[in-house]
């Protein structure tokens, strides 16, 4: 309740602050999926929301509003720009054995960074950002992905966020764009909110090569310790690829993680996903195969089959069923449905 009241007051204050202007440009208006540009200030406010229902085969059903994220961007055309993503987690929850509750709602900064553009090939980023491993982690927001469930390989073996310094940009290589990022996470003092399984320290990087307008490949590496397991150093490498054409999509990621601790198993994890558009390109069939080595079990495998409906580009309804073997802990069997909106 307190959050919604505060949000309403914030919107009213913004509306008062905005002055009318001759409509030579149309960017001052709010557009669904593009946020609200605050007239000539360089500020843009937006975000996304996601609600889901899960019905695991071997557990009670549950309903959650899992993500309510607010983007605040500042870019006034100078060499500096700022981005933050403030997320309200566990906003609403209910279940078979649980009445509707909001007392677990909390706020956390998912991302919080400043970019300094040096030139077209180099940008310096300082703050908290998404770890550049694979593609899914960099676009994991519910309105941008095709399934309610997230592949194990995209979040299980590394911290999904890093806090520190990143150098990123692109250059021409063999007449195609090669994008790169290199980062270091050596302190938590600039992490406004400690992530789940955060890095204690990490260095890593990613290369992404755009072979054509429809095909890109990526390679990632990371060398890190986790805050909760500081005695072990991990070494991770990954490959990913995505092909897309006229709403058809094929994507795949694979990672391999080793460690210098004799008792920690080396693990391979990966997935391959296909998306096929149906009538009027608003309905899509999604299929995904995943495999994941597990520290305490044999290799798990799952298959996901789902439907997605996009009445408008920023809105998606999803329905899927997941089943597999040796998957009870990391990716249990069951049905799930969700609604996500980019606003």
């Amino acid at each position: 309740m307190r959050f919604s009241t505060l949000f309403n007051l914030f919107v009213i204050a913004l509306s008062i602050a905005i002055s009318a202007e001759a409509a030579e440009d149309t960017d001052s208006a709010y557009r669904l999926g593009s946020g609200y540009a605050v007239n000539k200030t360089g500020l843009r406010i937006g975000g996304y929301a996601n609600a889901l229902i899960g019905a695991p085969r071997a557990a009670p059903w549950h309903f959650e509003v899992t993500d309510l994220s607010l983007f605040l961007t500042w870019d006034n055309g100078s060499r500096l720009r700022f981005f933050s993503e403030l997320e309200a987690g566990d906003v609403l929850r209910a279940g078979e054995h649980q009445s509707l509750e909001t007392q677990n709602a909390h706020f956390e900064f998912e991302r919080f960074y400043i970019d300094g553009l040096v030139n077209n090939n180099l940008t310096v980023r300082l703050g908290k950002f998404l770890t550049p491993i694979g593609q899914w982690n960099l676009i994991h927001a519910a309105p941008l992905v095709w399934t309610t469930s997230r592949p194990v390989a995209t979040e299980n073996s590394f911290s999904t966020h890093a806090s520190g310094l990143m150098l990123h940009g692109s250059a021409l290589f063999a007449n195609r764009q090669l994008e790169y990022s290199v980062y270091g996470d050596v302190t938590n003092s600039i992490d406004p909110h400690r992530s789940k399984e955060p890095f204690d320290n990490a260095v890593g990087g990613q290369l992404r090569y755009l072979l054509s307008d429809t095909l890109q490949i990526g390679a990632s590496f990371a060398n890190f310790t986790l805050t909760n397991l500081q005695s072990s150093r991990y070494y991770l490498s990954g490959l990913d690829a995505m092909w897309s054409y006229q709403k058809f999509e094929l994507s795949s990621e694979i990672i391999y993680r080793t460690s210098d601790h004799a008792n920690i198993k080396n693990t391979w994890q990966g997935f391959a996903q296909s998306v096929i558009p149906l009538f009027s390109q608003r309905w899509f069939v999604v299929g995904r195969y995943e495999f994941f080595d597990q520290s305490q079990d044999t290799t798990g495998q799952v298959g996901v089959l789902g439907l997605a409906y996009r009445p408008l580009p920023p809105i998606v309804w999803k329905l899927e069923y997941r089943m597999g073997t040796h998957n009870e802990i990391l990716a249990p069997d069951g049905l799930s449905a969700s609604f996500a909106i980019l606003f």
């Binding site: 937006g46 870019d75 981005f83």
Partner: peptide, 12 residues
Amino acid sequence: YFNGITPPKVMA
């Protein structure tokens, strides 16, 4: 947009 980058400015 998820990365804070907006499309080209639209003029009337």
